[in-house]
Simulated assay, not measured.
Amino acid sequence: MSLSRIVMRLARNPGSEFGGDDRRGYTLTAPLTADGRLDPEAYAATRAECSVRRFAPDEDAVMGRLARRGANWFFDYDKASSDDDEPVHRLGDHRFVVGEYVTVTDEDGQPLTYKIVEVQKA
């Protein structure tokens, strides 16, 4: 089972404090299907290797894990608490291909759009 490395960078978010910013985003390690969607079966077998790294120029990078509860996927930075979880709108429905967009609700509850800029085998 192979994993992919996915890089998402902040896209323009009109009406928010953020314009597009290539220095702010996420790097994911996750299993993908042939059409670029998250693979739930492969995830079950590789859960411990599935990770997320949040990066921004004004803060230290934060490491976490890609997690799933039922059909809902999210980024979890502390297993002991759900207060830091970042839900991702319909993450399981997204195709992780360069040029697509993903909305992540940040730790402050603000939904922000990110553009997928890189997908490669991990």
Rank of each mutant, 00 (worst) to 15 (best):
L3F: 09
R65M: 15
A67M: 11
D106T: 10
P14E: 13
M8W: 00
E118L: 12
R24G: 03
D108G: 03
A11G: 03
G25R: 00
R47I: 05
R24M: 11
P40H: 05
D85S: 07
G25M: 06
V7M: 08
R95Y: 05
P31L: 03
R90M: 14
E100A: 12
D106G: 07
G20N: 10
D76M: 01
R47S: 12
L28N: 00
A80L: 07
R53C: 05
D108L: 06
A71I: 07
V102L: 02
P31G: 04
N72K: 13
S2P: 14
G36S: 06
A61I: 09
V62N: 02
P57D: 11
D84W: 03
L112R: 05
L91T: 07
T105S: 02
G92V: 11
S81Q: 10
A80P: 02
N13I: 10
D108K: 08
D35S: 13
P14Y: 03
I116Y: 02
Q110W: 00
P31E: 00
D39Y: 00
G19Q: 13
T103P: 08
K115Y: 02
E49Q: 15
A30H: 00
A30V: 10
F18V: 07
G36Q: 04
H89G: 01
L3R: 11
S81W: 12
R23F: 05
R69F: 14
V52W: 03
P57W: 12
F74C: 07
V102N: 02
R65E: 15
F74S: 12
K79V: 14
V97A: 09
R9Q: 15
A80Y: 04
R9D: 05
D78V: 13
V88W: 01
V88N: 00
E107G: 04
G92R: 10
V7K: 04
G20K: 11
I116P: 00
R68K: 15
S82K: 10
F75Q: 01
L3N: 05
A30F: 02
E41P: 00
R54N: 04
D84E: 13
T33R: 06
D93I: 01
S81L: 12
S51I: 11
D106W: 04
D39R: 02
Q110F: 07
D106Y: 03
V119E: 11
D21W: 08
T113N: 06
H89L: 13
Y26I: 07
D78L: 14
A56D: 12
V7F: 04
T29M: 04
D39M: 06
A30N: 01
Q110H: 10
E100T: 13
T46E: 11
M8K: 01
R47K: 13
T33N: 09
V104Y: 03
I116S: 00
D85E: 12
Y101D: 11
S51P: 05
L10C: 05
D78E: 15
R12F: 09
G99T: 08
E118G: 07
D60Y: 09
V102E: 01
